[in-house]
Write a protein that binds this DNA or RNA. Structure first.
Lengths: 206, 206
DNA sequence: CTTGCTATACCGACCGGTTGGTATGTATAA
DNA sequence: TTATACATACCAACCGGTCGGTATAGCAAG
């Protein structure tokens, strides 16, 4: 309680660090990591270079932290990976897809998936970026695969499919759908693609 | 015949322009458009700034030309859009997917699809980039949709599906598969995803 | 065929601005 | 008093773009 009450100037390192992460996330989401300007991030966060280089050794490390501490949670929350799953996984996945299609924002259609953006931009250029980004994708696909496998055990999913392969395809289709819709700037296309994916999931029932 | 024989110095504007386009394509494919350095492109092309700015008014225009004159053909050729199609479209698409899966290069897995890379990076930042990239995607999806519609007329494709929606989903799944595989640096994952897509296509038969 | 003129094609030094990064100073919390 | 948490001033490197100059090709006139 002490920290919250004592508000002498912006001198709370955790708050400062979080402002940096949030500002960096916004700028990276828009321009990409390489084109993201530290000065712009600093201005948006309302701090100076000194604060930035006190908390992070260099620009790359700021980027890694954005992936691990902002983008990861952003993604896993939005795709229901954090919620415990139960019942028929096909229906669960379909419900998540429908909910996402219903809650799309213009911002989201315009800028796409922040994790996928970073994956496409940085994977060939920076090994640590690739690892960080990929770790989150693995959590996602792993969760989907686990649900599908449970569905197979419970008799709600066909047993002649490989859960991990299907999970990877589902995630790839989602990311591809966001990507195409981003290029076309069309929420309708995105919804249509997610709808086709839902019908594909339907074909996984026994 | 005159031009080909007279080889006095590198003074052939068409050749110079093409060297610039090819060098720019390679650099943009690797680093992205924004991070692509003109000096690096110039060095790779073996020409100087003067030549570049004689042929193109600015960096952006060079990028547009790369999309229209290099990437577009690169993509349409690789996905069989230029070849005339006949017969059952599901089988045709499956054959293309199989051929692509068989002919994957390490380069391709590492760097992904050049058109999709540009779409993800530049769509929110530059309207003309978006239009150029999207025009090629439209040609691709349009060709797939047309084949599927023909299949419906010929009785080789189910009539209760919307060809354009299916075509968009197929393209999105392909691009998403390349994207995920690029992040995972895994040709196996890419092949697996294309295989799942082939089985999805199978479900389109009556 | 030669000469002279002009438009094209290209060269490379240079420019202002922005970049990520650093060094030093200072206020605050413990 | 000491370590932490910043702020500020500054730097070299690199960026896209410009500019004056030059070499060449094509054509027209003599």
């Amino acid at each position: 309680m002490a920290k919250a009450m004592v508000k002498r100037r912006g001198r709370d390192p955790d708050v400062t660090r979080d402002k940096l992460l949030q500002a960096a996330f916004g700028e990276i989401y828009r321009r990409g990591f390489q084109a993201a300007s530290l000065d712009t991030i600093l201005a948006k966060a309302g701090v100076t270079k000194g604060a930035l280089y006190h908390h992070f050794p260099d620009k790359a490390s700021l980027g890694y932290a954005v992936v691990d501490e902002v983008v990861k949670g952003f993604l896993l929350e939005r795709w229901g990976v954090l919620e415990p799953s139960s019942g028929d996984p096909v229906t669960t996945l379909q419900r998540i897809l429908r909910r996402r299609a219903a809650n799309l924002t213009a911002h989201e259609v315009e800028l796409g998936c922040p994790l996928n953006n970073l994956a496409q931009e940085m994977s060939p250029l920076d090994q640590r970026f690739r690892q960080g980004v990929n770790a989150t994708f693995d959590i996602w696909t792993g969760a989907v695969a686990k649900d599908l496998a449970r569905g197979q055990a419970e008799g709600t999913v066909r047993k002649d499919v490989d859960p991990r392969k299907i999970a990877a395809f589902v995630v790839a289709s989602i990311e591809g759908s966001f990507g195409l819709a981003k290029g076309a700037q069309s929420a309708a296309m995105l919804r249509s693609n997610l709808e086709v994916l839902r019908s594909f999931l339907e074909s996984l029932r026994p």
